[in-house]
Design a protein around this nucleic acid. Sequence first.
DNA 1: GTAATAGTTCGATACTTGACGAACATTACG
DNA 2: CGTAATGTTCGTCAAGTATCGAACTATTAC
Lengths: 110, 110
Amino acid sequence: MAARIEEPPEPVELELTTVLSALADQGRLAIVRALSVAGEAACGEIHQLAGLDCGKSTMSHHTRVLREAGLTHTRVVGTRRYVSLRRDDLQECFPGLLTAILGEHETTRA
Amino acid sequence: MAARIEEPPEPVELELTTVLSALADQGRLAIVRALSVAGEAACGEIHQLAGLDCGKSTMSHHTRVLREAGLTHTRVVGTRRYVSLRRDDLQECFPGLLTAILGEHETTRA
DNA sequence: GTAATAGTTCGATACTTGACGAACATTACG
DNA sequence: CGTAATGTTCGTCAAGTATCGAACTATTAC
């Protein structure tokens, strides 16, 4: 499906350990970095931007983890789901966290 | 044991996902916070300071994860192992990360 | 309507992780 | 020396997670 009737869960209260768990994965970190650059992207685009090499279901799993952790927002347009970082909410809950994680300068495929 | 002959591994190159994994646990987060306050503490002390409720082996497991992730340094004195945060190394590798994580103001048992 | 597109959900599998107790190792103390 | 104190290591178990393919759903295009 492109979208269920119900909107995907995006928590208001973000838990630090949940956020960190979501980020503690090379693939999802790559997704977050790609989103940081692109601003907003559909899953298929993210797949390319982040240079991920996985199936659709895995991709869907990762975006779900990010969403449920409160890291991303999803906007449904047609068959597409545009994903973006919840920068403001993150900054409010955990000031400086996203910056610290994105402010990385490594090249090691992450 | 209080200490094996060989010193425990403390990596020089810190990997972000590994660091985040180590921090993505309530117990270890509590340990890191306790260390942040206490500066340095032996495992038994940490156990109390962090208000953890687990066996020795579990405690040892957590300190090992933190150490191997590069978050902590261990100093052996007699039968005790004094653990402390590698603030400088962390700041150098991931500027602002530790601050962002410690700069939290939640009271929820974490 | 039919087919294509974009993603989700389901079920299965393999791997990782957290927790525990028991046994061990090292040092300190008598 | 024997004993206590402090942690580590090992084996085990339960629970969680990453990945995949297949089936499904909703929307768009023809």
